[in-house]
Design a protein around this nucleic acid. Structure first.
Lengths: 299, 299
DNA sequence: TGGACCGATACCGTGCTTGCATGGCCGCCA
DNA sequence: TGGCGGCCATGCAAGCACGGTATCGGTCCA
């Protein structure tokens, strides 16, 4: 009994006939002759086992079922209509999704501004955010699990990258600490207490820099943390001082004071946007292209 | 160059390959061999001018555009999937729309109950309501502009109908009227005032009945209205009495009292559901079939 | 480096769909 | 009321698109 299924030709034919209520005109509209149209509708009616038109000798009239099927057919054709354009836009990166990772510390400094910049350069692209430490980001970038990372150096040579932010470190001290009072720059040699250190796994870059600044002997003795809020909580509890990226100062924490470091001790830390040139995501390619042409991050 | 457009075969092929990420398995799933699938995808890519898969030698991988197109293809196929069933349901009246008309007066008495009854007999069918006087309903029924009417007699022979409601008339009098006080039955001969009459156009049936009950001489002299609320407002204003279907008593109006009529004067008025047997609306046919089998309106 | 796997291509056969011509039915009009 | 025109349905032959078989070419793995 012909369990044949619907074809788009049938749908288009049906919609044309339903709108014209006249096989001849509908056929003309479809650049067709009338007999094929008749057979298309017949096939449709046989497949659906439903009469779609009342043949009244004088033209045709939609049945109630025909009206329902008309709505469905129109929706199918409308969806089919927009699919190619949507696909092309996804292919050239006009629309799409950017899977973006950031370090816990990086988020505080630049994530919001970076997202704004991405939104301006590639409108229509949405971002999916994940927090990952830098080494995990490099692995995820290589596996195409993310498209873009906000990472600390060093950056493996296989990736393309752009300096996003550079800032120096400041000293966070407990409010009860002698150094909490002054407001000029302090030298690291004035700090006699322990330090709250960065975890060498979670924040290798900051760990290494701080270790170099202070010396491993004193740096290693205290708590290790990688989340900045955790570190500030430990500072506040009086367990020691900490070296913190300047941007974190925006985060006021009761019981914690910040001091500038002497120019001799200051050391800047950087954050980089980083991506794989091999990544096939068109949205990323479009953003990368834009960044190559104009690497400025403002505006 | 082939500005060829999409085919459902291509869509199904694409979805299968996108889900299996393997031409051979996808072909197997579609009861096909692999070469046609290759050509379908190639045709798709040519039509869209977009690469949908990355061929990596070892299997294939969806591109970002391919992922977008996959969603569209799935939606199209899903819509197409449900269309036949929805159409069949519309054809047998399981779903559909019933265009229902009612008289202004009929609405107060029985419309809600009637709709409840329709909802029980033909669940899935929705009602579209219009208010029309009975003659207009007959015309609309004949023109297939409505499917079902709630009308007053007489009903033209071409229609099928069912008694929906029968009730007698009661007398509405102004609160200031002498008759407003007692609570037994009154006789029409006790009414010495004018009557608020029904419009012979808007409410021909009630007009005729009342005219017969009272006599044209006294009935014709007063205000004519067809909307019951209007009539009650006129009664309340002391312009006269009115004969009102009993069900309207449920509508309490300040300043209006109701009195029973003597059995000798009581006259019942009826309301009928009415439809055209030729109406092709399957929802109506299903309801009519149900009413023929069991004309009781309760439950 | 040879074998296995996988997608692409070449070629051929078949079956669907189209167009042309015509039939059948209904409504209109003289 | 009979002829005519409009409209949908049908018969038939031709074209073409799609599927299957066989084979190629490239990649990965042992």
């Amino acid at each position: 009994m012909a369990a044949m299924d619907l074809s788009l030709q049938q749908l288009r034919g049906f919609v044309a006939v339903a709108e014209e209520l006249h096989y001849g005109r509908a056929a003309q509209r479809l650049n067709l002759t009338q007999p094929p149209l008749t057979r298309q509708i017949q096939g449709l009616e046989r497949t659906l086992d439903v009469r779609l038109f009342d043949r009244t000798g004088r033209g045709v009239r939609l049945t109630a079922a025909g009206g329902v099927f008309l709505e469905h057919a129109r929706r199918v054709l409308a969806l089919l209509e927009v699919a190619p354009e949507a696909t092309r836009r996804a292919a050239d990166g006009t629309t799409g999704t950017l899977r973006l990772a950031f370090t816990a510390i990086g988020a505080y400094a630049v994530l919001a501004d970076f997202l704004t910049m991405v939104g301006k350069r590639t409108p229509g692209v949405t971002a999916e955010l994940t927090e990952l430490v830098s080494p995990a980001q490099f692995e995820a970038l290589a596996n195409l699990e993310i498209d873009l990372g906000l990472v600390r150096p060093p950056i493996p040579a296989q990736f393309e990258s752009l300096l996003v932010h550079s800032e120096d470190l400041v000293l966070a001290v407990p409010a009860s600490h002698p150094l909490a009072l002054g407001d000029g720059a302090v030298s690291l040699v004035d700090v006699t207490d322990d330090y709250i250190g960065y975890s060498p796994e979670g924040s290798q870059y900051l760990h290494d820099i701080c270790a170099a600044m202070i010396g491993m002997d004193r740096y290693a003795v205290s708590q290790l943390a990688s989340q900045v809020p955790t570190m500030l909580a430990l500072v506040r509890a009086g367990l020691g001082c900490a070296l913190i990226p300047r941007s974190i100062m925006a985060m006021g924490v009761e019981g914690v004071r910040y001091r500038e470091l002497d120019a001799a001790d200051a050391h800047s830390v950087t954050l980089h946007a980083c991506w794989s040139p091999d990544n096939p995501n068109p949205a990323l390619q479009r953003l990368a292209e834009s960044l190559r042409l104009d690497p400025r991050l403002t505006t």
